[in-house]
């Protein structure tokens, strides 16, 4: 079994996707990306990820809907919402729908690393 954790990044902005992929690959993860909720679901169906990082405002299936669908299907992987929405309602809604963590943009890449580590540790238990 490979000890590299697999991460799926879901974001409709290519620059963010690339930047995150760059950073997380550097941190030693196996990184995969999807540009919207629908593609993410397809990927998750065919492969198992240890953690999913998702934007909220995306075309077709928003991050909220994505979390809802994933949690309804019983996906184990923790979901971290990474969004430029920083209103209280957005945070509440995200956790309500089953998100495991929430970060707002602008985000610190280092903080993100730490949170990912923590989420992975918790989900392994």
């Amino acid at each position: 079994m490979s000890d590299k954790a697999k991460i799926l990044i879901v974001d409709d902005e290519p620059l963010i996707r690339d930047a995150l992929a760059f950073k997380l690959t550097k941190d030693g993860y196996d990184v995969d990306t999807a540009e919207d909720g629908e593609k993410a679901i397809q990927k998750i169906e065919s492969e198992e990820y240890h953690i999913i990082i998702s934007d909220i405002m995306m075309p077709f299936i928003s991050g909220f809907e994505l979390v809802k669908i994933l949690k309804e299907r019983g996906t184990d992987a923790p979901v971290l919402m990474l969004t430029s929405l920083n209103s209280e309602t957005a945070v509440l809604k995200a956790f309500d729908l089953g998100a495991d963590d929430f970060m707002t943009k602008p985000f610190s890449p280092n903080e993100l690393s730490v949170r990912i580590k923590k989420l992975l540790k918790n989900s392994k238990k």
Binding site: S84, L85, N86, S87, E88, A90
Partner: peptide
């Protein structure tokens, strides 16, 4: 438009 999108 983000300012208003998250404004109470």
């Amino acid at each position: 438009y983000l300012n208003i999108l998250q404004s109470p």
